[in-house]
Amino acid sequence: MEFLRPATWAEALAAKAEHPDALPIAGGTDVMVELNFDVKRPPFLLDLTRVTELADWAPDGGMLRVGAGVTYSRLISELGDQLPGLAMASRTVGSPQIRNRGTVGGNLGSASPAGDAHPPLLADSEAGAVVEAHSVRGTRFIPISEFYVGVKRSALEPDELIAAYWLRPAAGPQQFSKIGTRNAMVISVTAFAIALHPASRRVGTGFGSAAPTPRRATEAEQFLSDELTASGRWESRAELDPAAVAQFGELVAAAASPIDDVRGTASYRRHALSVMAKRTLVWSWSDFRNARPAPNSRRTA
């Protein structure tokens, strides 16, 4: 094995082009487990923690561009107000030690259906977040819903690295909910994120651990967006219609194609998803009714 230690982004891309089989390592919270347990023996490790460009974030044309190497801890403290959904998900990742090291870039790199960053990335704005991938050949902007292509497989080419991801700062309430066996240090049985986008009268969703990839519940989004618009609720901010809430929960559950595994059965996952969808909808709608512009409330299921 060789340890590659690029000092700049240009060097990192050159190294990845020369050695497409090099395994990038950022926070190492997925990679080191695989190395310690002999699951992987890559010919090259490509350390990205020296590349300072990756650890930056900045507003850019109404969006936020967040470097792949920003840790969960920094995301929570520096971007919690602007990205409340992603920050809520980040707070549930592992433990303080894991959040001090782990990154959303690494969560994307692993592309696990259970990765907690994915649901809020999917729920963000009308079409979800965008992944900015670089290689020596150039830059690609990959819509998040096209990024996940299979169980732990992403749309990244072998010579590409994730530079950053783009999100819209929250313009409405966002919520995240995760089911696990305890509060800390737990891989999700299922997870769900919702974001209200009052300006465009849309609702965004994302769920994890209930299909081969993280997914949006597009029919549920469409149903609820239409229902809220048709009933004039974006303007009146009236209480939700309980029948619509129930229907939303059912459509979210129907979007899943879960499996039975050690963490839970498929039917439990479907049920849990519908419960989380209904709860997070009610929470975020009540935030909307209370008319805080970009609320950053913290709740757990």
């Binding site: 190395l35 347990f37 490790l45 090291r101």
Partner: peptide, 25 residues
């Protein structure tokens, strides 16, 4: 595997699991 925290050290003033940091990092 990062689960127990008994390897916690400061790395540049930040507590991390030393078992999940590559020595080269």
């Amino acid at each position: 595997q990062g689960e127990c925290g008994s390897c916690t050290v400061y790395l540049d003033q930040t507590p991390v699991c030393a078992c999940l940091v590559a020595a080269g990092q």
